[in-house]
Structures are given as C-alpha cells and as structure tokens.
Amino acid sequence: MRTEAESGKVRIDKERFFNLPVVILIASSFMLGMSEFIVVGILPGIAADLKISEVTVGNLVSLFAFVYAPVTPLGSALSARFPRFATHLTLIGIFLAGNILCAFAPNYAVLVVARIMIALVSGTLVAVAMTYAPDVTTDRFRTKFIAWVFSGFSIASVVGVPVGTWVANTFGWRWAFHMINVLTIMLIVGMVVALPRNSHIVKIGFLPQFRLFFDRRIQLGVLDVVCGAAASYVFYTYLTPIMRDEVHVPEQYLSVGLVIFGAACLWSNLYG
C-alpha cells in the first residue's frame, strides 16, 4: 500500500520499513547522538586547545543533560501546537547553528553557550521525529520504528563518535564539528525531499499534556531510562581518559574501544 502526503509531492511506501523517510528520521537521531556524545571522544583535544582541565570539559556533558532533561517535555508539548514540518526544520536549523558555534568557539564560555543551544532543541527533535510514525510506516512497524529512532543514538556511539575521534586526532577537534555540520546540511536536504508535510496538531491545552506523568507505568518507564542512562553515560563520558590513563590503551586504539562500547549499547537497545 502507498500513501501520499497532503503536499501531493511526497509518496511513501509504508509497507517497506526502511523507506526513505524512516532512514532520514533514523539519521536525524544519529546526528543528534553524534553531536551529544562527540565530546566524549575529543575531550582531551578540547582541554589541551582551550587550556582547561579534562574535568571541566567533561562538565559540558553534565550541562547538556541538565538543559536537555527539563526542556524536552516542555518543548515537546509546545511543538505539538505548531505545524510539524516547519517546526522540525526550525529546530534542526538551531541545532546546526549550535554546532557551527562549537566549531569556531574561541573559548570555553562560547562552547558552553553552543552546547546549551544544542541541548535546548535535541530532545524536542527526537519527540517530533516520533510523531511521523503513523505517516511513514504501518501499525505493525510502529514499535520497530520507535526502537530504531532511539537506536540512532547508539549507532552514533558505534560509528559517529569513533569516526569523530579519528577526525579530531588527525585534523584537530574542531574538524569533528565541521564534519557534523556538513552531515547536518545533507540531512536537512533529505528532510526537505523525503518527509511528509502533513501535521497532527494537538488540540488539548499545554498543561493537560503533562497528566500522563501521573500514570504509574509512565513513571516506572521514565525511571528505568534514567537509571540506565546514569549507569552508562557517567562512565561513557570519561571512557577515553579511562582507557588512556587507567587501562593504558594506546591512543591509536581508543576509537576501537569506543566502537566496542557503542556496539554493546546498540545491541542492548535493539534487543530490549
């Protein structure tokens, strides 16, 4: 069965799971994950270049999380009130601007501002991507779609961060962000070409959308994700210096360690 978006131009084969819109949405979460986690692989390079401690650079990850966590539900509730495609492009534009600022940041303060910009929109971008599910796939693929979109972050751990680390070690840490920027521009082109323009604007008020947090099942689900993320990301943030200083892994093999860790995350995510 084929369906046509309201624009009259974008046709989607919903019977084939890995159609172009689904791939684009998985790629978008991959880019979000790569941007979020890239600091892990290039942490020593940033610290040396900006003449600050690695712990200070590691705080960028904590800062990202502190902004990401409260803004995501608020941004998701607000975004539902506006045309989806235009909102999606606007948010990805802010994401691109934040990464460009990272690439050219002259000091730590500017890098902090840039990371805050990225954190402000990243969670909402994931939420918006999820709303495409009924438009790009069938009911029987709905759970698989959600799993794969979230797996974009794990794929970033397997592929994106190690590649970014290699780029940073070879050309300098700023080039890791330049690479993200080029890939994001390509992603935006793909979004314009492939994603449906129809919207499902939420009719209910802003505050009533948060009633779902009073559901015990939702509370347990959120707690499960929080505990899992806390257990893995606290270690993952400092994985590069841990491998280098504690395990004494040669620098040329640090990317291999990141790949192994990311592969374990990807497998567990898809299996779960």
Rank of each mutant, 00 (worst) to 15 (best):
A156W: 07
F177C: 06
V202K: 08
V225Q: 09
V192F: 07
G164N: 10
G205Y: 05
G152E: 00
T170L: 15
V182D: 04
V159D: 09
Y132I: 01
L212I: 13
L223P: 09
T184K: 00
R174Q: 06
T170G: 12
P208I: 04
A129C: 00
T184P: 01
P134K: 08
F150S: 05
F145I: 04
L195F: 00
D139I: 13
H178S: 13
D139Y: 12
M130G: 02
P162V: 05
W173I: 02
R197D: 01
T137G: 01
I204Q: 15
W173F: 04
V193S: 09
F210N: 03
V128T: 03
L207R: 06
M191W: 04
W173V: 02
W166N: 15
R211I: 04
M130L: 06
S154Y: 11
A147I: 10
D215E: 04
T131N: 00
P196W: 00
M186C: 10
L223H: 07
L223S: 12
M179A: 11
P208L: 11
K144Y: 02
D135W: 01
V202F: 10
T184R: 06
I185Y: 14
N198P: 01
P196R: 01
F141D: 13
V202C: 05
I146G: 05
K203E: 12
V159I: 14
A194D: 00
R211L: 14
L207E: 08
N198G: 01
G160M: 09
G221N: 10
D224T: 14
A129Y: 00
L212E: 08
F213Y: 09
V193T: 13
L220Y: 06
F177K: 06
L212M: 11
A176S: 11
W166S: 15
A156Y: 05
G190Y: 12
S199T: 07
V189K: 10
A133T: 13
G172V: 05
G152Y: 04
R211T: 12
S199D: 08
